[in-house]
Design a protein around this nucleic acid. Sequence first.
RNA 1: GGUCCCAUCGUCUAGUGGCCUAGGACGUAGCCCUCUCAAGGCUAAGACACGGGUUCGAGUCCCGUUGGGACCGCCA
Length: 466
Amino acid sequence: MRFAPSPTGYLHIGGARTALFNWLFARHNKGKFILRIEDTDRSRSTEEFIEAIIEGMRWLGLDWDEGPFRQTERLDIYRGYVERLISEGKAYYCYCSQEELERKRKEAMAEGRPVKYDRRCLSLKEPVSGVSPVVRFKMPQYGQTIVDDLIRGKVVFDNEQLDDLIILRSDGTPTYNLTVVVDDVDMGITHVIRGDDHLNNTPKQIHIYRALNYEPPVFAHLPMILGPDRTRLSKRHGATSVLAYRDMGYLPDAVVNYLARLGWSHGDQEIFTRQELIEFFTFDNVGKAASVFNPEKLLWLNGQHIMNTPPERLAELVIPFLVREGIIKDEDEVDRGWLSRAIVTLRERSKTLLELARSLRYYIVEDVEYEEKAKGKFLTGDRADLLLELRHALSGVEPFTAQNIEAVFRSIIEKRGIKLGALAQPVRVAMTGGTASPGIFEVLEIVGKDKALRRLDRAIKVSSGQ
RNA sequence: GGUCCCAUCGUCUAGUGGCCUAGGACGUAGCCCUCUCAAGGCUAAGACACGGGUUCGAGUCCCGUUGGGACCGCCA
């Protein structure tokens, strides 16, 4: 198996899904997974995109066994094959100009005829001087070609439709349809798994395999992933690169899980570990219809994976976000054990690592910022006395644990005959600045006694209007 | 326009001729739990594109229609 992206863009959701299915199939069958960069389009391929694709693969955890190979390092190999095809009469030089070809193409489309090269250069005996030719592959013109696809079954094409495609450009570089065949042969690829936008190319490639005296591999064409408007997924539909999801605080396991479920299923199961995906993945359960990318479901799944991730691990993962958000200055500023305990309270309330980091702010910084609405509602003059009583009671609590803190709260509300909410909400504002947080007793414990008392003092001042 | 592919709730999907009064999940709404927010639990609304066949029986097989998509490059 191989994943063979062209570095003319970042690793986007669609490419990642193709890579994932190749990887899952390879791992499930204990086969080899090869990464190959198809960079023969020199005008559009860049080093930056190559790096980004590799980084994206690494982040997703799609490790490869061989490569990354680059086609631009193999140009001599392709040229050898082209020469062989020409000498065997299976390919020929073509001197037609691009302008003329373009004109004929438009004409054919306008008149509703199939677009096809007219083979005018096929019978040429002498080279045309002053023109550097391309090389065309001679396609059979009668009979049928059957693509036996793992997902679609047998797909039949009439050879009459097949166009003599260009395999070598006038600048001497090979084109995709040749390189893909040569490399897949050369690298011993047994299964070609790719997007179904390649299905129409497949019969042509099959003939190139045959011309080279090789047996074509097994094909599996995956359905496309569409945006919410049911057109092909693009930048307009959100993140362009999978790395954007990393930066938004998504877990690679969640993205992998989501992508796997786009077009594949295992009964009613929604949440999978990587191991489960490898174990369960087969093409029997891959669907044929295109699917729409649903960011809400990905977000939910990310939340589920966060809940299933050990707090110690989350602590490591969230630290870069804490730094990025300016909550801490460097990664050693915060105690990992304490951070893990803080994360336990926030784990089921965070759908992304970014959200988790932002919620951790009020545990870490010295002073919280009050939300205007929350302050107006809960830090009012009539609460000052209540908060003061709590402050004094709390100062004697030792150890400062949620359990002991709760006992203090219970005794105060019982004495005063008030509901817990009447006390908890103002304290919540004092501790977090807002009205939504984990349970107030745990919040106090995590904040710690000294800081909690300081925050209460400040809240009391604000309440009493000082 | 030509060729090819596809078609179950808004979305992802289960379904491989009788287990389907079409199941699950996201999202939406309501209720429960509750110190707030989540998480969790329960409930609700919500789909077999249409028309013909085949069959005792069709979401499932066949044909057509409609709709969507891909490709038709000296891009991959």
